[in-house]
Design a protein around this nucleic acid. Structure first.
Lengths: 346, 346
DNA sequence: ATGAAAGCGCTAACAC
DNA sequence: GTGTTAGCGCTTTCAT
């Protein structure tokens, strides 16, 4: 037979107390005699009482659940961020509800409704790449739902209940290209994603600025736009190799396209990094397994998750650190591996 | 100023109706005049009414949220399964709450409490590898919480509200080893995880049985036990190469250890697959990037997630397909890649 | 220090 | 077809 869970009312009856007293005994509430508190705690332990969080949340008007919306949880990056989020949230006594937008704005909107209808205490969102229009976030802003964007933020949207944590894509790209230049490469190509996506735009800028700062010209034909799949990386590399002045290095806005390029280079009998150097972005797991291992930019994903939760906690409890919560920009770390080290150490 | 969400009571007041009527108008409930239904729907749309799912769940005694507990969401496998789960759940009108046990039984227990306190309609669980004792699941069984194990199941536990979906590890391992034998390898080593973990035990059995069925002896010194890290794979391979009768193939219970072995083989100047063949398990993303690409066993992860949800839905709504819900065992698919193909096609 | 009562937002049983 | 009432389990005034 189905077992109903013990409620506060049950315990109150058993102990001949009012429900309110039992409730108080189970929380930090001061005005309860130590004796009753003991009795209640004891019984609760015996019966394995667990509060119905639904009821708590309904009464209090807010739950201890945080909502997370990510484009997907494939690959390396988002799972790590989510892990960081889950860790930090649990430590702070919150649990986490995760939805995937599958990079679709409509689905994203549905997810947000779902989560707000579940009365989450706050939201952590990484935007779908198709999202341009911010209408569905306007509603959240008006309802004062605390909201932290991570990785893919909506620049236009600000408010007292909104913050964000992103990585400094510009700095990461700049560091990678500066490194290639320091190694002596001079004809550096770039694989970019669509520029209307912020991260790709900023990585592209970092690339250009690094060239500029080192007195090198920007050559349009060295930039290849694609969705950055492995296939696209291969295609891009083939195309670059057909140029009269072919590049001696490629900085790719992700790692997958780097691998595609690597495979084509091998096909052509070119050596990496002796003939052509490669540097990617994201520190995907497989970058350590390729030959040579790929230089890349680490995105401190777990840290991003933790920081995003910190931001959200500040929004939820302004008491601890009053004043506006400022967006955070994390500095990514360049991981130099064999694919870009021309000078073999002696 | 903070905006309170519109409630059914609000709309009832505005339309001069009883809350119950409004509620009925918004559901499939039959006994409502088409006129009122229209009026209500209209106003709801205007005001952007969204039901408070907390209240609905509290009232109905069960929510439309499914709880998921996974050891972690790193790597390739679990994210894919979770994606399958989320997809199928959303299609069926459920949303999903995900927790990570970090392979720790205590954390797993906490997660289960968290989710049941949140009144989830059902649970999808993949066990932490440290979980031996089933006490915390006994409680769920007694409370009749529908429960589906996936990938890592608890064999001992059965009941009318419990089911499971796993892959046929035995068959997968058998297929991999049979393939190696068919390619002409005769001294096949095995990297295994701890045998108290079911999956490793069954893969180990598949390995032994395949050898046996092909009339080959089981040689204890060819089995290397570890936690199957890349490092462990390297160590294992070194150890195997010191044997007087060294193996000409390795079947590893995961892909990471395979990579470790591959790196050691290259160090020793041995060719893969000419000198030593490699086959792993899991179809990790990086198996296509190694050189040569690694033969492995795909675990149909997304499908597993979808099937797990199907099982759970059957437990939740026995109406559609009455009778007991039987555990499912999915057949994994062997993916033959270059690391195990001795006979180069002409 | 404890109890009584109200109510979070919703739905289902029971009137009419 | 619609209204009235009660209650899911909890917390929080307001009394005493």
């Amino acid at each position: 037979m189905t077992h109903r869970r013990t409620s506060i009312a049950d315990m109150a009856r058993a102990l001949n107390l009012a429900p309110s007293t039992v409730s108080r005994a189970l929380t930090q509430y001061p005005d309860v005699s130590e004796a009753t508190r003991q009795r209640v705690r004891q019984l609760a332990a015996e019966l394995g009482y667990q509060p119905n969080q639904l009821a708590v949340a309904l009464r209090k008007g807010s739950s201890n659940t945080l909502g997370v919306v990510v484009p997907h949880i494939n690959g390396h990056f988002f799972p790590e961020v989510v892990e960081g989020i889950a860790e930090a949230a649990n430590e702070a006594g919150y649990n986490v509800m995760i939805c995937q937008s599958r990079d679709d704005t409509r689905q994203e909107k549905k997810n947000l409704e779902l989560l707000t209808n579940a009365q989450v205490a706050g939201l952590l969102v990484s935007l779908a790449s198709t999202t341009r229009d911010a209408a569905h976030f306007e509603a959240l802003r008006r309802a004062d739902v605390p909201l932290v964007f991570f990785d893919r933020a909506l620049d236009g949207l600000t408010g007292s209940h909104i913050s964000s944590v992103v990585i400094d894509d510009y700095a990461g790209a700049y560091a990678a290209v500066a490194h290639l230049l320091a190694e002596g490469y001079r004809h550096i190509a770039h694989f970019s994603g669509p520029l209307h996506v912020g991260i790709f735009q900023r990585r592209h800028e970092g690339y250009r600025q690094a060239l500029h700062d080192h007195g090198l010209p920007f050559r349009e034909e060295l930039v290849f736009f694609s969705e950055l799949s492995q296939q696209a990386g291969a295609t891009g590399m083939r195309q670059l190799l057909r140029l009269s002045l072919a590049p001696d290095a490629v900085f790719s806005s992700n790692d997958l396209a780097s691998v595609g390029a690597l495979q084509v280079l091998k096909e052509y009998g070119l050596r990496v990094p002796a003939d052509v150097a490669l540097a990617g972005f994201s520190n995907a797991e497989f970058t350590t397994f390729t030959e040579p291992p790929l230089t890349t930019v680490d995105q401190c994903s777990r840290q991003m998750g933790r920081v995003a939760v910190q931001q959200l906690l500040h929004l939820l409890h302004p008491g601890s650190a009053p004043g506006p919560v400022h967006p955070v920009r994390l500095s990514p770390q360049l991981l130099v591996r064999a694919s870009s080290q021309r000078l073999i150490p002696a």
